[in-house]
């Protein structure tokens, strides 16, 4: 088990390095020039060239990449003399536009994105899995049909549409909730909740619909498995047949999907954060794209890969824990 974990962690590091190299190469090829950004607007060509030398941007790609990777572990400084900027460990690049290390920019925004993602995940799990299980067990009834038609409708609504409607109806018309802004959970748990409810709903609705449909299919499929019939043939109560023998295997693929989705969301929900002006990673990413702030874009790309790869690892571990067939002997 420990060997398995070590191998997986090693593979994870290798994947991250590959992602890093790939993004690095892509940005190297882009026309945008960090030296010009560092130097400012009224900068002569000579001066830009000087800055380029000082920042190491004139070095070969491999050397620059080496500096980038080592900075992650050892930190680095950009430039020399009075213009030098220090980027401490862990240095994921420096945003010359914001005059801040990328790491600081990201860690500032991370709590918002994590709050948004986790809250929404809880919501869509409750709604989606609940509706899916109910639908499957009452298959063919009006309840099943209503729920499934409802999920098609919801799945057809884009996030920006639901977000606008929610903002208009709940905030502008009814005035039930404040216009969302981020309040740290530690400062004011109630404010944290009331401000995040709308973003949670907007983000969760689509997933709830998808999860409901997937859960329904999975439960229907599992309840038709021979081992469920065996559970009934043993004389178990129906509640136990469903709960222990049916739902556990039926929800395994749901757990897998949750891992993937959550992994992607932790590094920011771009649309939702932008719509509600929440200062999360997704918003930072959108802003950085607009400003062509390459170091930040690259940092977030790496952060997202990290979350996705680690959630995959967690999913695999959970899977092995639930399903003994997936355990390595």
């Amino acid at each position: 088990m420990i060997g398995f974990l070590l191998r997986r962690l090693l593979a994870m590091a290798a994947t991250l390095l590959a992602v890093c190299a790939l993004t690095f190469a892509v940005f190297y090829l882009l026309p945008s020039d960090p030296a010009a950004q560092f130097c400012g607007k009224d900068c002569s060509a000579d001066r830009i060239e000087l800055v380029r030398q000082q920042l190491g941007l004139a070095d070969p790609l491999a050397v620059q990449f080496w500096h980038y990777v080592t900075a992650v572990f050892a930190g680095r400084s950009y430039g020399t003399g009075q213009y030098a900027v220090q980027c401490d460990f862990p240095c994921f690049g420096y945003s010359f536009q914001s005059a801040q290390p990328v790491w600081d920019l990201m860690t500032d925004r991370l709590p918002t994105s994590v709050s948004l993602a986790l809250g929404a995940a809880v919501l869509w799990l409750l709604l989606g899995v609940g509706a899916g299980v109910l639908s499957a067990l009452r298959r063919g009834t009006w309840l099943d049909r209503t729920l499934m038609i409802g999920t098609i409708g919801i799945a057809a609504l884009p996030v920006y549409f639901t977000a606008m409607i929610l903002l208009y109806l709940v905030v502008s018309v009814a005035g039930l909730l404040p216009y969302p802004r981020y309040i740290a959970f530690g400062e004011d748990p109630v404010g944290w909740t009331t401000n995040l409810i709308l973003p949670w709903i907007a983000l969760a609705l689509l997933n709830a619909a998808i999860y409901a449909r997937m859960t329904r299919n999975s439960v229907i499929e599992t309840m038709a498995e021979p081992y469920v019939r065996t559970a009934r043939a043993k004389g178990l109560r129906e509640r136990r047949v469903v709960g222990r023998h049916g739902l556990r295997p039926a929800l395994t693929p749901v757990a897998t999907m949750l891992g993937m989705d959550l992994g992607g969301l932790l590094a920011g929900a771009l649309i939702t954060e932008s719509l509600f002006s929440l200062p999360g990673i997704g918003k930072l990413f959108a802003d950085s794209l607009n400003k062509a702030d390459q170091p930040v874009i690259m940092g977030i790309t790496l952060l997202a890969s990290f979350f996705i790869i680690s959630s995959n690892l967690v999913v695999d571990l959970v899977y092995a824990w639930i399903d003994p067939r997936a355990r390595l002997s």
Partner: peptide, 15 residues
């Protein structure tokens, strides 16, 4: 009354 099913691999619960 008890039943013995055909394919024990699918008739027994994998978990």
């Amino acid at each position: 009354m008890a039943m013995v099913f055909q394919d024990a691999l699918t008739a027994l619960h994998p978990y």
